[in-house]
Computed example of a mutant assay.
Amino acid sequence: MNITRGKVAKAQKVVIYGPEGIGKSTLASQFPEPVFIDTEGSTANMDLARLDKPSSWSFLLQQIDWVKQNRPCKTLVIDTIDWAERMCIEHICQTNQKRSIEDFGYGAGYIKLEEELGRFLNVLQDVVDMGINVVLTAHAQIRKFEQPDEMGAYDRYELKLGKKTSARTSALVKEWADMVLFANYKIYSVATDKDGKKHKAQGGARVIYTQHHPAWDAKNRHGLPEEIPMDYSYIAHIFNDVPGQTTQQPTQVVETWSSVPSESVEQQLAQESEQSIEQPTIATSQPDITTETSNTVELNPMIPKSLRDLMVQNNVSEEEIQIVVSKRGYYPMGTPITNYDPGFVEGVLVGAWPQVYGMIEEFRKSLPF
């Protein structure tokens, strides 16, 4: 047994939430060497490193797995976690053939949501354990809150997660985080008459609240002041000198792929194609911040995007999907994917992609070459 004393420098789990347009993404972009997973597509006008917008829950999990394997950054930003929760709900409904999370009955759907999101946070914990900070941004919502030992109720800001009282995803995310930072506009009410009966709002400075308050959720474990300006320099010292943060700049990855002449790319892909014939492998070692042109398989653009993204990422052809589907007796061999039922595509192929791809790998291993 070892006993240690003093503070231990480690990567941080941070939640930044606030109203839309407050600057959550901008603040997150100032963290050390960030790479964004933009679940809602709101960073298009920002100069930052990002992975492709995930089109499904399975694709989002594969992107995080790629970050774990390749360590392309010092900070992974999920922007936003409430939009990721939407994909999680959609995934649960599709895999269980439900139209809504309410269709499970008696709160069972929200229990499944809590379990799935809990597994998602465990995966992010693995990223943190590798020395990579994880930042989750989220929108804020105002809820009526009533304490059990007090009379009356009042409004307070909370994470825009778990819209039903039976959902605990908001509490789960707050418990997981080392820091919960609430960003908001600081508004002053100024009297406009001598009796103080009429007021107008002034100010509007952007601030970050770091400690719990009856009107909002916030916390930190670093002794930060209760209120600080919305400026990364006030929290930068927390993220310095984190051990194990040996990475390459994400922007260098993008520039390397974008600056290669098209002829060189074609030669490189041809070499990779020859190697894949000798020993089929999953193409997870290649950064999926590239476009579909980095894949050797040409896919029908009419294939649903959520499935097509997974096929592109793992270099899976339409024929391989057809083989697996026909072996399981779902559709005859040769049936185009575009003729598959959309519920089957989303609920089975996308929803159970790890199992589908496992069958494809087994098929590849059975080939005589």
Rank of each mutant, 00 (worst) to 15 (best):
residue 3 I to T: 11
residue 6 G to N: 09
residue 9 A to Q: 10
residue 9 A to W: 00
residue 13 K to L: 01
residue 14 V to L: 08
residue 22 I to E: 05
residue 23 G to W: 08
residue 30 Q to W: 03
residue 30 Q to C: 03
residue 34 P to M: 07
residue 36 F to K: 02
residue 38 D to E: 09
residue 39 T to C: 11
residue 49 A to F: 01
residue 61 L to H: 09
residue 62 Q to Y: 11
residue 63 Q to D: 09
residue 64 I to C: 02
residue 69 Q to C: 05
residue 77 V to T: 01
residue 78 I to N: 01
residue 79 D to Q: 08
residue 80 T to L: 01
residue 81 I to C: 04
residue 84 A to H: 04
residue 87 M to D: 14
residue 87 M to P: 03
residue 89 I to L: 12
residue 91 H to I: 04
residue 95 T to D: 07
residue 99 R to G: 15
residue 103 D to C: 03
residue 111 I to K: 14
residue 112 K to A: 14
residue 120 F to A: 02
residue 123 V to T: 15
residue 125 Q to K: 08
residue 126 D to Q: 12
residue 130 M to Y: 00
residue 132 I to N: 04
residue 135 V to C: 08
residue 136 L to D: 01
residue 136 L to P: 04
residue 137 T to P: 01
residue 139 H to F: 12
residue 143 R to G: 03
residue 146 E to N: 10
residue 147 Q to Y: 14
residue 148 P to T: 10
residue 150 E to V: 07
residue 152 G to V: 03
residue 154 Y to M: 10
residue 156 R to N: 12
residue 159 L to A: 06
residue 161 L to R: 00
residue 170 S to A: 15
residue 171 A to C: 08
residue 171 A to Y: 11
residue 175 E to G: 14
residue 176 W to Q: 00
residue 179 M to E: 13
residue 180 V to L: 13
residue 195 D to H: 11
residue 196 G to I: 07
residue 196 G to V: 05
residue 197 K to L: 13
residue 197 K to C: 07
residue 198 K to F: 10
residue 204 G to L: 00
residue 212 H to G: 15
residue 214 P to A: 12
residue 220 N to E: 13
residue 221 R to L: 06
residue 222 H to F: 14
residue 223 G to Y: 07
residue 225 P to R: 12
residue 231 D to M: 08
residue 234 Y to Q: 15
residue 236 A to W: 00
residue 236 A to N: 12
residue 238 I to N: 06
residue 242 V to P: 01
residue 248 Q to H: 11
residue 249 Q to E: 14
residue 253 V to R: 00
residue 254 V to Q: 14
residue 254 V to Y: 05
residue 256 T to P: 00
residue 257 W to I: 09
residue 259 S to V: 03
residue 280 P to F: 10
residue 280 P to W: 10
residue 281 T to N: 10
residue 283 A to Q: 13
residue 289 I to E: 04
residue 290 T to E: 07
residue 293 T to C: 02
residue 297 V to H: 10
residue 297 V to G: 03
residue 305 K to W: 03
residue 306 S to K: 10
residue 306 S to L: 01
residue 307 L to Q: 06
residue 313 Q to F: 09
residue 314 N to Q: 14
residue 320 E to L: 05
residue 322 Q to M: 12
residue 323 I to K: 13
residue 324 V to A: 06
residue 326 S to P: 00
residue 327 K to V: 08
residue 331 Y to V: 03
residue 332 P to H: 08
residue 338 T to A: 09
residue 341 D to K: 11
residue 342 P to E: 15
residue 347 G to E: 08
residue 350 V to C: 01
residue 350 V to P: 05
residue 350 V to G: 03
residue 354 P to H: 10
residue 355 Q to L: 10
residue 355 Q to N: 12
residue 355 Q to R: 12
residue 357 Y to R: 11
residue 358 G to C: 06
residue 360 I to G: 02
residue 361 E to I: 14
residue 366 S to K: 15
residue 367 L to S: 14
residue 367 L to P: 04
